[in-house]
């Protein structure tokens, strides 16, 4: 067999370790994200998913281990530096600017990406307006572009997060609970869009998600974490069949991992 993709994966995480005081929030996690692929991290609350995420995006530098983007180490870099290397991220609790319009929220990301932040003489109103409108069209928010972010419905804010994350033409997207708080129909729509963008533009996507249906229908590979450690990695089918995964979600059973056991 000849290797089909001789190049290294877009993102490689090796033996990541994050310590909070005495506790190891992330303990030796390794994972890969290839261009164009959706990789999901799942696990119970407190498994270390968000910490893992923050360590990759620079919000919380790892204590040990390495994060490689295109084979180059980005561990310990500042979030703004990691952003400039082509990593976009969305937040679990939306972090948009409520006092700006939808379009302005995207514009300001574009302003930063094009390094025009320190231009007190340039009017921001028309700066990268068309580019912002194109991104808003992509996520289907053209009709809302002049509304204040503070009055948007939560689902719309989540979509806007995606448009902002796309502003720096990222090669890697980090999405922390991208659909939390959205209505079921909205969730599927948003994640279908993400999957399409990933395929069309060759963006690697790493996401955490509560909605198990979404994870199993869209992720190319699933990484299961438990108590800071990597429990299993594999395709949805492999993960679904893994008894250990059932166990951490449902508790230990003395016989098998099967679900239909009577309670003792």
């Amino acid at each position: 067999m000849t290797p089909q993709h001789p190049t290294a994966p877009l993102l490689q995480v090796r033996d990541l370790l994050v310590r909070y005081g005495e506790t190891l929030a992330v303990n030796g996690v390794s994972l890969d994200v290839e261009a164009g692929k959706l990789i999901a991290i799942i696990g119970p609350n407190g498994a270390g998913k968000s910490t893992c995420f923050n360590a990759i995006s620079g919000q919380r530098p790892p204590n040990a281990g390495e994060v490689l983007l295109d084979g180059k180490s980005i561990s310990g870099l500042l979030p703004e530096t990691i952003f400039s290397l082509g990593v976009g991220r969305t937040f679990q609790v939306t972090a948009t600017v409520p006092t700006m319009t939808v379009r302005e929220n995207v514009q300001v990301a574009l302003i930063s990406y094009h390094r025009r932040t320190f231009s007190p003489w340039v009017s921001a109103r028309r700066l990268y307006r068309e580019e912002a409108d194109r991104l808003l069209e992509l996520i289907g928010m053209t009709g809302q572009r002049d509304r204040a972010c503070g009055v948007l419905a939560y689902g719309d804010l989540k979509r806007l997060e995606l448009a902002i994350a796309l502003a720096n033409a990222p090669r890697l997207l980090l999405m922390d609970e991208p659909t939390a708080g959205m209505a079921p129909a909205e969730r599927n729509e948003l994640m279908a869009l993400v999957a399409r963008l990933a395929a069309d533009r060759g963006i690697g996507v790493l996401f955490t998600e509560h909605d198990i249906d979404i994870v199993f229908s869209l992720a190319h590979r699933i990484v299961v974490m438990n108590r800071g450690q990597l429990l299993a990695t594999g395709t949805p089918d492999v993960i679904r069949a893994d008894p250990r995964v059932q166990e951490i979600y449902l508790g230990r059973d003395d016989h098998t991992g099967s679900a239909e056991k009577q309670p003792s």
């Binding site: 199993f216 995964v245 679900a259 239909e260 009577q262």
Partner: peptide, 18 residues
Amino acid sequence: PMQTIATNQELYHAHLAV
């Protein structure tokens, strides 16, 4: 009753299982 949920596979898969 707890019993019902614990033994009802359909419910269990729809809302709890992976």
